[in-house]
Design a protein around this nucleic acid. Structure first.
Lengths: 211, 211
DNA sequence: CGGGACCTCCATCGAAAGATGGAACCCGGA
DNA sequence: TCCGGGTTCCATCTTTCGATGGAGGTCCCG
């Protein structure tokens, strides 16, 4: 089954993490790191050049595009490589966009090296590996559909958490203030709270939005 | 000047990061990684056994003791090694306790390898290296002492962050709603914001309140 | 083809929250 | 002793929120 080695692209803005991934993965037979990218933009460019089987993608980069958007751009092309998310963040706000963008797997950086290598092989095969924490979150989301916030609601709440007024949120998302209020009313109902600050506190506790 | 190599202990709960630090530092002449620790407790124990010149310490570990406390325990002993913080977090709430605990330097994980090696040598020498972001924060804190919230103000803001209304905060602290408003008005002025959610966001970012 | 989510927008009304400009008290230090 | 910072309280006025109860639209799926 295993003939040609699996070619990897490491996309992470931390040199130390790239070196660590390289060190961990290159000791594995059949895995070869052929490129690194320090920005999401570079990752998209390099992935488009071909020759990559699996991209290990961080979600947050210091500047510019995020990992989720980069993932979407990479997977949009025909014959695109698989994208395996490797990050430290496990809130809904991070996980859902990444999965929607077409990520093949989602691992946390505290994963042991064996799991990492196994996940890379699974990803190269087109199958999914999820970190236990991530899997838990997704299961909870399926079990309690009433509580789950929709994509738009999460987006609104994230901006509210940054201290924006309804009007300001509307401007940012190109909505009327009334629409923002509608979303918030539904959010309050789902989270069983009755004010924006309470909603932010509840959502933070549930990991729906990131700290 | 440089005779014996500098012995290093890597304390980080991420295997990938430990591997990355090792890879980056061992290519440097005169630096030798002699031990690793995956928990803060282990780091304290290993540091006490001697033979370590510099500990590279992460601040947050999945479980148990944090990096700041571990730093305090390590530096408390006579003839203790230097502790260089290497982490991804740069909020006041992370920085200040670490420095108070006796850390010799504070770097962020996105630092280039050269800076890292240079900081290790500086630390071994007993001198301080601070990441630019960290230095900025400390300078700002010294320049604007008016920004500091009083004990009462912090208390009020913490309850607001939990989602309580002004009236509810007043009840909790045995104050009238008017008094709570007074405190909040002063808090807004100090943080340069104009709403409760913005104040919570700002204070969270500055590490004034926890979560 | 229908539901059924989801997203968008509307209007009105009462309730909080925020702005403003005070005032009084206590306490510790110059 | 007086001063300043912190804490508590007050009243008024404006703005923003939140509650309520719709309504029309898209899109996907059975």
């Amino acid at each position: 089954m295993s003939h040609a080695p699996i070619s990897l692209l490491l996309a992470d803005d931390h040199p130390v993490v790239r070196a660590g991934l390289r060190a961990v993965l290159e000791t594995e037979p059949g895995l070869v790191v052929v490129a690194e990218a320090a920005t999401a933009e570079d990752a998209v460019t390099r992935a488009a050049e071909g020759d990559i089987d699996v991209v290990l993608m961080d979600l947050r980069f210091g500047k510019g595009m995020g990992g989720a958007e980069a993932t979407a751009r990479i997977t949009a092309r025909p014959g695109a490589p698989r994208v395996l998310i490797v990050t430290t963040y496990d809130s809904d706000a991070d996980i859902l966009p990444a999965i929607e963008a077409g990520a093949t797997g989602y691992l946390l950086k505290d994963a042991p090296p064996e799991d990492l290598a196994a996940a890379v092989r699974t990803a190269a095969d087109g199958r999914t590996t999820l970190a236990p924490t991530v899997a838990d979150r997704l299961m909870n989301r399926l079990r309690t559909p009433g509580t789950a916030l929709t994509r738009r609601e999460t987006e609104v709440l994230a901006l509210v958490a940054e201290g924006l007024s309804n009007q300001a949120v509307g401007d940012r998302l190109h909505l009327t203030e009334g629409t923002v209020k509608s979303h918030l009313a539904r959010i309050y109902a789902k989270l069983d709270v009755d004010s924006r600050t309470a909603a932010v506190a509840a959502a933070t506790g549930l990991g729906i939005i990131r700290r």
